[in-house]
Design a protein around this nucleic acid. Structure first.
Lengths: 105, 105
DNA sequence: CGTGTAAGGAATTCTGACACG
DNA sequence: CGTGTAAGGAATTCTGACACG
């Protein structure tokens, strides 16, 4: 789980472009459509993570399949929602387990 | 062991500078002294990995302690040598184990 | 030896816009 | 809608060198 490297935003758009094969124009456009969220340096240069790069490649695949950015965004939001519910479920389960700990032994 | 992210050289010198607190001048100098080995883009811009950043911080600590770059380089070479011997040892041990596998059962 | 700085050039990045479809 | 491109400006990076100590 310690994804310190994978999620750290340190890669500039030129290198992301090389790594993904996507033009800077496309990469900026997907940000405009709220599919990726790079950070910025003080001067405003975009910084991406390895995670962002993976997301970009998934986006590229879907675009190629004719999926519109709006649809892709909906899918991403749905996945996030499902994941949060899943996490919440696990958390509650954990609390229950802790609560009935004595009984279980 | 899959350090795909940690060892991938994708970070430009400006961001490395921010992350380490070292000036670009220092970072380039340590390369000149053969303490780090960034890759280059086609146009010659240096690209560093997270590993490089960690190495840089170790170097900075030693420099602060008054250790000269030449000494640091010697230490690094020594460590590499020791590590290779260790690896070789393990490899041979593995071969021996494989060779006498039947006997061991 | 280690590091700052000014110098000049080349390549990057940014934004807003026009174009095409 | 998705993407290319020319435009103009600002910031980055590079190298070789001089400076100080």
């Amino acid at each position: 789980m310690s994804e310190s490297y994978k999620d750290k935003k340190v890669i500039t758009i030129g290198i992301v472009s090389e790594l993904t094969g996507l033009s800077p124009r496309k990469i900026r456009y997907y940000e405009e459509r709220k599919l990726i969220f790079p950070e910025r340096t003080k001067q405003g240069t975009r910084k991406y993570s390895f995670s962002d790069i993976e997301t970009l490649m998934e986006i590229a695949d879907k675009i190629e399949d004719g999926v519109q950015t709006f649809e892709i965004r909906k899918e991403m939001l749905k996945k996030e929602r499902d994941k949060m519910l899943e996490d919440k479920k696990k958390m509650i389960q954990g609390q229950l387990n802790a609560h009935f700990k004595i009984r279980k032994q």
